[in-house]
């Protein structure tokens, strides 16, 4: 079986995993990217969110075979970037983080939104986060965190 080749947080990597193995498991088990969380394993919660060629995807729904040649960014990758740092700081100051289990995924969703729309309205933020579930916050302070990211990171996105 041929290795699957993809870019992970800017580095070329290979995976010898079964092409049907979930991208989520490959990232967590084989690359110890544990910022990617499993909340449901059925595409409902967004805790496993990563960027795949710049698009927000649920990594539990992607077989690693489909990642061949793709550019994958995880929370571990995003947190090292200027944009990631702005989101993390904004989330921390807004009170967007409680138990934190949804938060790395929320950060990915926030970045994906801001790439498309660097000055989103509250409604647009709520829409963009609607695939990421949070049971702790009731979302208000996460929405605030995203708004705050847009303000602080004006020139970044």
């Amino acid at each position: 079986m041929k290795d699957i080749e993809f870019t992970l947080n800017g580095k070329k990597v290979h995976s010898a995993a079964d092409p049907l193995k979930r991208l989520l498991d490959v990232l967590r088990d084989d690359f110890t990217e544990t910022g990617v969380k499993e909340g449901c394993g059925e595409g409902e919660c967004g805790a496993c969110s990563v960027l795949m060629d710049g698009k927000l995807v649920n990594s539990c729904m992607v077989p690693i075979g489909a990642a061949e040649g793709c550019d994958i960014v995880t929370p571990e990758g995003l947190r090292e970037t200027e944009k990631g740092k702005v989101i993390i700081e904004s989330f921390a100051d807004s009170g967007a983080v409680q138990c934190g289990f949804c938060t790395p995924g929320m950060m990915m969703a926030a970045d994906a939104l801001l790439e498309e729309n660097s000055n989103p309205s509250e409604e647009e933020i709520r829409e963009a986060l609607s695939g990421n579930l949070c049971r702790c916050t009731g979302y208000d302070l996460i929405v605030k965190g995203v708004k705050d990211s847009a303000t602080r990171g004006k020139k970044l996105w």
Binding site: V36, T74, I88, F91, A96, V97, C99, G100, P104, M107
Partner: peptide, 8 residues
């Protein structure tokens, strides 16, 4: 705990 959690 905010930064540690948000950054994964």
């Amino acid at each position: 705990d905010a930064v540690e959690k948000a950054s994964g």
